[in-house]
Write a protein that binds this DNA or RNA. Sequence first.
DNA 1: GCAAATCGGAATGAATTGGTCCGATTAGCT
DNA 2: AGCTAATCGGACCAATTCATTCCGATTTGC
Lengths: 135, 135
Amino acid sequence: MRLTSLADYAVVVMAAAARHPTGASLSAGLLAEETGVPLPTAQKVMGRLAAAGLLLSARGAGGGFRLARAAGGISLADIIEAVEGPIAMTNCIEGSIHDCALEGSCRVKPHLNAANDAVRGALQGVSLATLAEAK
Amino acid sequence: MRLTSLADYAVVVMAAAARHPTGASLSAGLLAEETGVPLPTAQKVMGRLAAAGLLLSARGAGGGFRLARAAGGISLADIIEAVEGPIAMTNCIEGSIHDCALEGSCRVKPHLNAANDAVRGALQGVSLATLAEAK
DNA sequence: GCAAATCGGAATGAATTGGTCCGATTAGCT
DNA sequence: AGCTAATCGGACCAATTCATTCCGATTTGC
């Protein structure tokens, strides 16, 4: 029930990016300096965010990243999923994976499914625009 | 954002225990067989649950475990915390630990705090009595 | 055409986790 | 009262995952 530090950094970096004017080209180095996140780590995090479609990347000199959507259209759940993968408390919730020995006779799965939706909903209710606000 | 398999097993075992009559002495072997959880793992899980005060343990022949409180008074959050430790999405939320380099200049911490409370609330809203119900 | 700057993926070391085993303790029977 | 059997409790070890770092691929601008 703890998110990885990679995801933690991703939230910080995305919030910093959201405070810049829309469309500005932001290098990993710039955001790393602004947030205090180590540069190599920021690079990795931003790479994953770009792969997930939350950031648009441009290579070469003068390149950088920019938000793919408006800050209001990106949720905390989106950021976490981009870095950590699907939000699924247990393996059996994720549709494709079925390596649970109790599969079939498990009596609690339906309830866990409901709990998982509740948690996910709480995370989807927080937008990046909110996270970027001061205090 | 995924709970460990130990916590997963804990939920299954506790739900099985809640289906037995109140006060009955339940050995780790019995619950392991009922749920399909490997016995050594069930032992470890139940040990932690007892240490957290969710189960009462009795040693020796004829001993075993029993629920410390009524099933309605135990929440999913309680079970997860018993096995995984405090529910805190980030290190900076946990009061005592402060090994975050961004501490002080971090702009998103207050928002994450609110998100954490929302997640925790969702988990506290599910009681063991609900988990023990069929389907 | 050259050079600088930036993204992208691969490799390494550490930490947490999952699983197993053996010792400590107690009730019940002889 | 002693012994046996059953059960909890804590310690140990292998494995997976995570966090971090470094180097190569690609593109713009001069």
